[in-house]
Computed example of a mutant assay.
Amino acid sequence: MKTVVIGSGSWGTALAQVLADNGHEVIEYGINPEEVNDINENHENSKYFGNTKLNPELKATTDISVVKDADVVLLAVPTFAIESICEEIDPLLTKKAIIVNVAKGFNPKTNERLSDVIRRCISRDHLSSVVSLIGPSHAEEVVVRQLTSIDAISLDDEDAKTIQKLFSNSYLRIYTGNDEVGSELGAAIKNVMAIASGILGGLGYGDNTRAALITRGLQEMIRYGTFFGGKEETFIGLTGIGDLIVTCTSPHSRNFQAGYQIGKENTVENFFKNNKKTVEGIRTAQIVHDVAKEKGIDMPICEEVFEILYSGKEPKDCAKDLMIRKLKAEF
């Protein structure tokens, strides 16, 4: 099977290398000639991984037409680019392909889940199914072949198994699942929780506080996800609590890093002035806030993150307000 990875960033490169390690035909597409040349000539992606050497069999290109005869197309681009890249590749595809998405969030214009965006933008003649490859994973660890487990989530069980077999090896273990709603919502909302975790770290709070945040944050993820039809058990799996733990505790997480800066300075102002990275949880916080308000879903942590990001509330006040809310039973 021929796989094309769209995106020459950190996660796209790490997953492309997994396929190269597995002996599969894979090529990585990127819009940055310097990154593409670095992969082809130096067997590195130094922008993201420094001097880490990549599998020399991994090749990259700036020619998007490479997707034309692909069996699998993996989208490793930010959420805002999913719609445009699907519209670009759809007329280039010559047969039905499995479209694999690894982004976590929502369409910034329509608030759709990303699987729905892909199904809307890729014609039926060119789409076998959508598979979401998500779970607790940092590219910086996968690229040096540290043990990692994630999920292949799809409404098509056979395509999920195909992706499972394609990527699984001695350091990357793939499980399958079919709760698309629960998995995608959990993977998106945990980015908001990671911002909250970073904020608390920046404010100087320690392990007790973070444990409470992760536990209560999980309850908000379950509350939101099950409202829209997700299965409660999904949230105690890799795309739920697993993804939540890794993003709330790791300095590799951009969402955690963003929150840490905001908390340390007790203001969001400088972050927005200077940030040049894609931090998916920022837009997700607004979407979850708006939908939760409309539907009457209780999301106090997400609400406070929204107030910090979009209303200028001081982080230290948000932390205090969460603690002095009306007392109640845990469940």
Rank of each mutant, 00 (worst) to 15 (best):
A20I: 08
D21Q: 04
D21W: 00
N22M: 02
G23I: 02
E28C: 15
E28I: 14
G30Y: 03
I31Q: 08
P33G: 01
P33D: 03
E34Q: 15
E35I: 15
V36A: 12
D38Q: 14
I39F: 06
N40H: 13
E41W: 00
E44Q: 15
E44G: 02
E44M: 14
E44V: 14
N45D: 02
K47C: 00
F49M: 00
N51P: 01
T52G: 06
T52N: 09
L54S: 01
N55F: 00
L58W: 08
L58H: 06
A60H: 05
A60E: 04
T61W: 09
T62D: 00
I64K: 04
V67R: 03
D69P: 04
D69A: 05
A70P: 12
V72G: 04
A76N: 04
V77R: 08
P78V: 00
E83A: 14
E83L: 06
E87Y: 03
E87W: 03
I89K: 11
I89Y: 11
D90T: 14
D90R: 11
L93A: 10
L93P: 11
L93N: 07
K95Q: 13
K95V: 11
K96S: 09
A97L: 13
I98T: 13
I98M: 07
I99F: 13
N101D: 13
V102N: 13
K104M: 09
G105S: 07
P108W: 01
P108E: 01
L114G: 08
L114Q: 07
S115D: 15
S115R: 02
D116M: 10
D116G: 12
V117I: 10
V117F: 05
V117H: 00
I118N: 08
R119E: 15
R120T: 05
I122M: 12
S123V: 04
S123T: 07
D125P: 07
D125T: 13
D125Y: 04
S128F: 06
L133Y: 06
G135L: 03
G135C: 11
G135I: 05
G135Q: 06
S137N: 14
S137G: 07
A139Q: 04
E141L: 07
V142L: 15
Q146E: 14
Q146P: 02
S149G: 12
I150N: 02
S154L: 13
D157G: 01
E158Y: 10
E158V: 11
D159M: 15
K161Y: 05
T162F: 08
T162P: 00
I163K: 11
I163R: 09
I163P: 08
Q164D: 01
K165F: 00
L166W: 04
L166N: 06
L166K: 14
S168K: 06
